[in-house]
Simulated assay, not measured.
Amino acid sequence: MKRRDFLFTVPLLAALTAAPALAQDIQDRTIKFGYFVNAESPVGHGVRKFAEIVAAKSGGKLKVREFPAAQLGNENQQQSALIAGTQEMAAPGSPQLVGAVKEFGLLDFPYIVSTLPQADALLDGPFGQSLLKTLPAKGIVGLGYFENGFRHVTNSKRPVKGLADLDGLKIRVQLNPV
């Protein structure tokens, strides 16, 4: 059975930015970092590595507290919390951002990339960076992208080898119109 895959990207968002500062100039602060997948996901591992780097570079004055598995609310609630300033960071899926910037929906089209290096080139290149630059007008700052693997069409009834195999299946889908 051939899998039907497409990229699932997770923009890394922050509700604040700071000018470069020396560790001695940084005030003690805890950053709430919410995300929607479990703590053992690639995003969870990335958040913990990010927390280590932030602690080291700030001399321990900045601490990142992770909130996996939608502990801070669903994607809409967390996006609102970012904009309101009650949550500092999040890693939502690209479908969530379509409501703010419709062009993020382009990342959800199936088969636009077939390998992780292609995904990196797309997101780290001009296209991905131009998407991030649209976010400050919406009250959030995009710092970069997490990859969370490729999406797959799965079910418990039968193999999916083509469009006809989807007939009659109930499939959970993402929130945007793609």
Rank of each mutant, 00 (worst) to 15 (best):
residue 108 D to V: 05
residue 20 P to H: 12
residue 81 A to S: 06
residue 63 K to H: 13
residue 107 L to P: 06
residue 165 D to W: 04
residue 40 E to T: 15
residue 82 L to N: 01
residue 178 V to P: 09
residue 50 F to P: 12
residue 98 V to E: 01
residue 100 A to T: 10
residue 8 F to V: 11
residue 174 Q to P: 11
residue 126 P to C: 09
residue 161 K to Y: 02
residue 97 L to N: 02
residue 3 R to A: 05
residue 145 Y to E: 00
residue 166 L to N: 05
residue 169 L to V: 08
residue 30 T to F: 12
residue 33 F to L: 08
residue 133 K to R: 10
residue 73 G to K: 10
residue 109 F to Q: 07
residue 6 F to N: 05
residue 43 V to K: 01
residue 63 K to R: 14
residue 34 G to N: 00
residue 61 K to C: 11
residue 79 Q to T: 14
residue 130 S to E: 06
residue 8 F to Q: 00
residue 70 A to Q: 06
residue 155 N to C: 09
residue 39 A to P: 11
residue 97 L to V: 07
residue 178 V to A: 10
residue 159 P to D: 04
residue 113 V to K: 14
residue 92 P to Q: 05
residue 19 A to D: 09
residue 151 R to T: 02
residue 136 P to M: 10
residue 154 T to V: 15
residue 159 P to I: 06
residue 54 V to S: 02
residue 36 F to T: 04
residue 18 A to F: 15
residue 37 V to N: 11
residue 126 P to F: 11
residue 146 F to A: 00
residue 137 A to G: 13
residue 24 Q to P: 11
residue 102 K to V: 05
residue 120 D to P: 08
residue 6 F to R: 13
residue 111 Y to H: 11
residue 23 A to V: 12
residue 90 A to E: 02
residue 52 E to F: 11
residue 123 L to A: 03
residue 39 A to H: 07
residue 165 D to N: 05
residue 95 P to E: 01
residue 111 Y to D: 02
residue 140 I to E: 00
residue 92 P to Y: 10
residue 27 Q to K: 10
residue 2 K to A: 13
residue 57 K to S: 07
residue 134 T to L: 14
residue 106 L to D: 01
residue 89 M to R: 03
residue 28 D to H: 12
residue 167 D to C: 10
residue 64 V to F: 00
residue 140 I to R: 08
residue 7 L to V: 12
residue 41 S to T: 01
residue 132 L to V: 02
residue 143 L to E: 01
residue 81 A to H: 04
residue 76 N to G: 07
residue 80 S to A: 14
residue 94 S to T: 07
residue 159 P to C: 02
residue 65 R to W: 14
residue 52 E to W: 09
residue 161 K to T: 14
residue 4 R to I: 12
residue 109 F to E: 01
residue 43 V to M: 09
residue 9 T to Y: 02
